[in-house]
């Protein structure tokens, strides 16, 4: 555990130093996050005209979903996306050899090596929205620990999806575009799952588990009866993580280096 923390702090300090060369990015990422939030909330409010609401979801409850979505996209751009593009680069340029030779678990190395601070404004704004909505909903503080657990499980699922995609680059090399496919599908998480027709709900629960990412934690937080969904989420998260690890091992077997 101590080693793990030491490794992470070395990794992130090094990437932070590299990223801070582009300080203008901070202005852009803050503007991006703020503008995205304002316009995104506007788009969400369009569904609540003329007394319409999603099945069982008020505007405030949907705000929790939107806040979770914003937070998770922030975390993706801080950790998942920068590391994923690095995996693609390693495979493309043949530097994956050096990674595999290091005395650190290769999955740990490639999924934590990079850290990009430019998603932090999104995380801050997302948490702000969740907090605001929780106060308006008068959330029982007793639900918070379970909601945190659900959010943590969501992060594990999200990580596994990104990482499984990164693993495919061993076979297909350039998977930048596949990341766009995944990003496009994850966009469905902006709205509670109840906003979609039945066919969509099945797809976004069992094929691409978007429903677990934002709707389930939001349900747990507002105290809607979600215990069974939470239990299923535990299974999905464990399964997703295990599969991503197995998938990485499998793909590494096909890795044929570029230098040896």
């Amino acid at each position: 555990m101590r080693d793990l923390l030491r490794i992470l702090s070395r990794f992130w300090r090094a990437s932070l130093a590299a990223e801070l060369e582009y300080r203008v990015n901070f202005v852009f990422s803050t503007l991006n996050a703020a503008l995205g939030l304002v316009l995104g909330l506007f788009a969400l409010s369009l569904f609540f005209q003329n007394g319409h609401a999603f099945d069982g979801w008020s505007f405030d409850a949907s705000l929790v979903v939107y806040g979770l979505f914003t937070t998770f996209s922030g975390i993706s751009s801080v950790l998942f996306v920068p590391n994923l593009s690095r995996v693609v680069e390693h495979v493309d340029k043949g530097t994956m050899d050096f990674v595999l030779l290091k005395p650190v678990d290769s999955q740990l190395f490639v999924s934590t090596r990079n850290f990009s601070p430019w998603g932090l404004p999104d995380i801050a704004l997302g948490l702000g929205v969740i907090g605001y909505a929780a106060r308006r909903l008068d959330v029982d503080p007793g639900h918070v620990p379970a909601a945190l657990l659900a959010a943590l499980l969501s992060l594990i699922i999200l990580y596994s999806l990104w990482f499984a995609l990164a693993s495919t680059s061993i076979w297909f090399v350039k998977v930048y575009n596949a990341t766009e496919v995944l990003r496009g599908l994850l966009d469905a998480g902006r709205l509670p799952i109840a906003a979609y027709p039945a066919g969509y709900r099945v797809f976004f629960t069992y094929v691409v588990p978007v429903a677990f990412l934002t709707s389930v934690p939001a349900d747990v937080l507002r105290g809607a009866d979600a215990t069974s969904w939470l239990a299923i989420e535990v299974v999905v998260a464990v399964l997703a993580f295990g599969l991503s690890r197995a998938f990485w091992r499998l793909s590494l077997r096909s890795y044929t280096s570029a230098s040896s």
Binding site: H52, G184, A195
Partner: peptide, 21 residues
């Protein structure tokens, strides 16, 4: 990758089924 219009489509079809749009 440009699946976003289809996602919006689902939500709006459902909304139009029940609300006044």
């Amino acid at each position: 990758a440009m699946s976003l219009p289809f996602i919006s489509m689902g939500a709006w079809i459902k909304a139009a089924d029940t609300g006044a749009f």
